[in-house]
């Protein structure tokens, strides 16, 4: 439903995207990843017509988005910018109601559809209980759910989100991503998000788009495309990719770089050891919550110089 053709976009003198062609699948959760300044936010902003491309086209259901009235686009495409400004003193219900703007005129400021859509959006994002609270009094996680509720009130088929989990703690990140997942799986919405965390991207995405320097390096299901080679290509980071112990999705673990991380064989080395291992058998036995200890294959590091953690990672054998 969303595609780009020969898209050139940027800010002032700087060209960020240079001739990008991309098709995003309908009814899927697409996650765009890439290093800082790779153009992923620029791509999202251009697709959401927040940024006018210098050349090329964004197609929404086959029609050039610039040929559509912006109000009509707002009824088909919801967008949550990176860090929206929270209006002072506005209540949650009020802000969610702003999502109905594309359906309203100054002489028709409210209809029963508006009310129903706001109710449904607040229920979906689980902010109904906060309806009367001022948005600026909420926590970061609650606030982000309110913003998502506002875009849901637009009642669009597609939803574009620019780094919706930034500045949230891990629990709230998972909460927001679970909500986006539900929107896709239960409501059949097309969700496109820029995320920073590769592992979260791999866990939630149906379709992963990896970008570097304004170009798409790879696109496809994370289980097919997310490899150590791709991470090295895109981020310039050495890593191992192992299956996630919870979901089986690819899990990216950066290699030991000799920096601040504890050296293998020191603090973590012992805990990684198998229960029967000679080094720390007692520690392993006393530490049942450590999922690593139960992995029979795990061995203490063999001291691989280039990638010392590779040999010792417990999940490798899964």
């Amino acid at each position: 439903m969303l595609s780009t053709r020969d898209l050139v976009a940027g800010y002032d003198e700087r060209t960020v995207l240079d001739g990008l062609d991309l098709d995003l699948p309908t009814d899927a959760f697409t996650v765009i990843v890439g290093p800082n300044a790779c153009g992923k936010s620029t791509l999202l902003r251009t697709m959401a017509r927040l940024l006018t491309p210098r050349r090329g086209t964004v197609l929404l259901d086959g029609t050039a988005i610039r040929d559509l009235p912006t109000r009509e686009v707002a009824r088909r495409l919801g967008v949550l910018p990176q860090s929206p400004l929270v209006p002072e003193g506005v209540t949650v219900a009020d802000l969610v109601g702003r999502g109905r703007q594309p359906y309203q005129r100054w002489w028709r400021q409210w209809s029963s559809e508006d009310g129903a859509a706001v109710d449904q959006a607040m229920a979906l994002a689980d902010v109904t209980d906060l309806a009367d609270r001022p948005v600026d009094s909420l926590s970061g996680g609650q606030r982000q759910r309110v913003w998502i509720a506002m875009t849901l009130a637009q009642d669009t088929d597609a939803l574009l989100l620019d780094e919706p989990t930034t500045f949230l703690d891990l629990a709230h990140q998972v909460e927001v991503l679970d909500l986006l997942h539900r929107l896709r799986s239960e409501r059949g919405r097309t969700v496109v998000a820029v995320l920073h965390d590769l592992n979260q991207a791999a866990r939630y995405a149906d379709h992963l788009v990896a970008m570097r320097a304004g170009a798409v390096v790879a696109a496809g299901p994370p289980r097919e495309i997310l490899t150590a080679d791709l991470v090295r290509d895109v981020f310039g980071l050495a890593c191992v990719v192992v299956p996630c112990p919870v979901t089986g999705a690819p899990l990216v673990v950066p290699s030991y770089t000799g920096g601040n991380a504890p050296a293998p064989g020191a603090a973590s080395g012992g805990r990684v050891a198998s229960p029967g291992g000679p080094v720390d058998a007692a520690a392993g036995a006393e530490d049942p919550d450590s999922s690593t200890a139960s992995v029979p294959d795990a061995r203490p590091s063999t001291g691989d110089a280039a990638n010392p953690l590779a040999g010792s990672h417990p999940s490798k054998g899964l």
């Binding site: 686009v73 949550l80 702003r98 703007q101 875009t151």
Partner: peptide, 22 residues
């Protein structure tokens, strides 16, 4: 009359405003 209504959304930042079709 239009302004009285349009004032409601001046508190939204430009990206958010464009997102809801303004």
């Amino acid at each position: 009359a239009w302004a009285g209504w349009a004032l409601n959304s001046t508190a939204l930042d430009d990206d958010t405003a464009r997102g809801v079709g303004l």
